[in-house]
């Protein structure tokens, strides 16, 4: 039952985010567009590249979808409304997200084309750049909650949301999440301007539909993680808990999808430089500050 509710919520969320993304790209708000586009994608031929690595080519998009779904499984939408409340939920989320990298490399390598391959390798090159900034802020969040359970993490924010408690961690986490979901301006693996679609370039038809859906699920899972870790999850006055979750997740996902389009695509070298030289020290500082606050001020 819970699984069904979560899946339906993901589907609805993916649809809304797709509308928003289409607006950000084409400048028009067309509510029916994602449905039409999806139907059209299903109607198009799914072309197999000439000499593909068949296993990687087929498995890449599906693995990405699985990784997104697994990550979503530990996001609590309301008390009791979570697919599985693992004691190590935050760690599990990390583990699930690690497969995004694998899936993208497979999808880039599989079709045996230069654009896809370079896109996949670019993502591999960025691994430390985003992965450290995902895991280190989570560490600080877990320190405050004294638990890795996502439900406990939400409950730990009853007095004060983490966005106020550790704003630095919030900013780093959102930026890293955008990198992980290759959202503009960090859309280097697909980079329409210099890789003509990159890892997506050789996928058509149903396979492309799966790849795009998987990315939507991943964006929602990451937005859900942001809400869980920093925005108090389902907590909020007047409205029922699931409504708060849905609202917050949609707003965060919407901002992640659209805000980055106001700046040009970040250069690969610059992204790595900022992430390694600035991001990681800041994330360490965040852990230190949160540690000190947690010891001194009991909130």
């Amino acid at each position: 039952m819970t699984v069904l509710v979560v899946l339906l919520a993901l589907a609805a969320g993916a649809y809304l985010i797709a509308i928003l993304e289409s607006w950000a790209v084409h400048g028009r708000l067309e509510p029916a567009r994602p449905a039409i586009s999806a139907l059209a994608l299903l109607g198009r031929e799914s072309v197999l590249a000439r000499t593909p690595d068949r296993l990687f080519f087929e498995a890449g998009p599906i693995l990405l979808l699985v990784a997104g779904l697994l990550a979503a499984a530990v996001i609590p939408l309301a008390p009791g409304l979570i697919v599985t409340d693992l004691a190590t939920g935050a760690l599990f989320l990390n583990a699930a997200l690690a497969y995004v990298l694998v899936a993208l490399i497979m999808a880039g390598w599989g079709p045996n084309g230069a654009y896809g391959m370079i896109g996949g390798w670019r993502f591999l090159g960025q691994f430390i750049a985003y992965a450290m900034l995902i895991v280190m802020p989570i560490t600080a969040v877990a320190m405050r909650a004294e638990s890795l359970s996502t439900v406990t993490i939400v409950q730990s924010q009853a007095a004060l949301w983490n966005i106020a408690y550790q704003p630095l961690g919030f900013v780093l986490f959102v930026v890293a999440a955008m990198g992980l979901a290759w959202l503009p301006p960090l859309d280097l693996p697909t980079a329409p301007g210099d890789l003509a679609g990159g890892v997506e370039a050789e996928y058509t038809g149903v396979r492309l539909a799966v790849l795009r859906l998987a990315r939507m699920v991943l964006i929602l899972a990451l937005a859900g993680a942001t809400v869980t870790f920093y925005l108090g999850g389902w907590l909020g006055p007047w409205l029922p808990a699931p409504v708060w979750s849905a609202l917050k997740i949609l707003i965060v996902a919407g901002l992640m999808v659209s805000a980055g389009r106001l700046v040009p695509r970040v250069r690969e070298a610059r992204y790595l430089e900022l992430s390694w030289k600035l991001g990681i020290p800041l994330a360490l500082a965040n852990i230190f500050i949160v540690g000190v606050i947690a010891l001194v001020v009991p909130i």
Binding site: G27, P192, D194, R261, L262, P264
Partner: peptide, 8 residues
């Protein structure tokens, strides 16, 4: 704009 992802 096309090249650098600045759709606006």
């Amino acid at each position: 704009g096309t090249q650098s992802g600045l759709h606006w």
